[in-house]
Amino acid sequence: MLRKATSQDVADLAGVSRSAVSLVLNGRGDGNIAADKQALIIEAARKLNYTPNTVALSLRSRRSATIGVVTDWIATTAFGGKLLQGASDVAAAAGYLLLVIDTQNSAERERDAFERLQNRQVDGFLFAAQSLRSYEPGDELRIAPGALANCFDPDDRVPAFLPDEVSGSKSATQHLLDCGHRDIVMLMGTPEAVAAGLRVQGFVEAMTEAGLTAPEPVVTGWDIDKGYAAAMQVLTRPDPLPTAIVGANDRSAVGVILAAAELGLSVPGDLSVVGYDDDENVAPCLVPALTTVRLPHREMGEQAMQVLLDAVLNPAPSPAAGGRGPQPRVLLDCPLVVRDSVTGPRAGR
């Protein structure tokens, strides 16, 4: 069995002292060790595949080098996977391990998850939600270093990282306007969903700035059959037919395309369609491939974890001591992904 490299091996290879290795690999090299020596130490550690003894580090620093991640029901979803991957990559680069518990949207399981993670002495907590929503954090997140991803504390006691739903919807609508569309209908999803209201806001802003009156959004759901039903309603009414429809999400946009096909309308020739989410299992696979708005799940995980680790490594005074004021809500860009489901309106429409 090969012997695991030690800090002394790294020191010998780099030609420095063992204490210098300790300072650099524990993030305290700046101001203590010359830059060229730091580079030699990092290169020696890489060559030897050296990793610090996390148990020893924990005893010295009184940290466990673990972060507790609690989710509602995202662990088995494609979007949730991207969020967790982003958080995990940032944590791993800093030498931290994630302990992830998915509660299946159970309040009882959520309480149990935080208790179990506290008992394991994690250094901080991240709570991540499947759908954008308000979230009331417990003491664990408000007192220990904590962060939220895809949800927000209504009282802003915990930093939150969120998709900029308004700008995403606005850019999708603006794309249709830039292509020459004026008769545009929006499918809303469900009114109680936070994201739905924000997307409607972006749609209205884009239409208003173009000097147009935004029609009332059509309340649907989030699935293919709901998008199909809404599109059949819109595309068979006596009013002038829209030349473009903005789906509540990618799945509802699939329903719109199916309805158009049944009515003998081509997409995008007769009807342009835009989705929302950039679901990798839906949007690029359609014929035509769906123009849509991408949700920044990976970026939410990355940035939430980075802020959380900064708080762990550079602790501020406790809230009781007045050291933590209102925490930011960071809005992350939702970029438009242009594919084949949008073109200019047919002449005469």
Rank of each mutant, 00 (worst) to 15 (best):
V185R: 15
P296I: 06
A316S: 11
P238N: 10
L23E: 04
Q118C: 05
V342N: 08
A78G: 11
G247V: 12
D277N: 13
T103E: 03
D102L: 09
K4R: 15
V69F: 09
E115Y: 01
K226C: 10
A75V: 08
K4F: 08
G322E: 10
Q38S: 02
Y135R: 06
G95L: 10
V200C: 10
R3M: 14
D279G: 03
D277H: 07
S58R: 14
L13H: 07
V24W: 09
G255P: 03
S272D: 08
L2I: 12
S266K: 11
R329P: 11
H297N: 11
A11V: 03
L48G: 08
L235G: 02
G197T: 02
A248Q: 02
S17Y: 02
A107S: 14
P240F: 05
R199G: 12
K82W: 08
F125E: 13
A289H: 03
A210Y: 11
P319T: 04
R346W: 04
V273H: 11
G68Q: 04
N105I: 00
R116F: 03
A260F: 06
A195M: 02
L258T: 06
N49K: 14
A144Q: 15
V24Y: 10
L98T: 01
V218D: 02
L241Q: 14
L162A: 04
V219I: 13
S19Y: 10
T66V: 05
A304W: 13
N105S: 14
D123W: 05
L13C: 01
L332D: 01
G180H: 12
E165N: 15
S169M: 00
V312A: 07
G124D: 09
L117M: 09
G264V: 02
P137V: 01
T6E: 05
S7G: 10
V16K: 13
Q303I: 08
A206Q: 04
Q118H: 11
A14E: 07
V204K: 15
W222V: 07
G221T: 04
V312I: 15
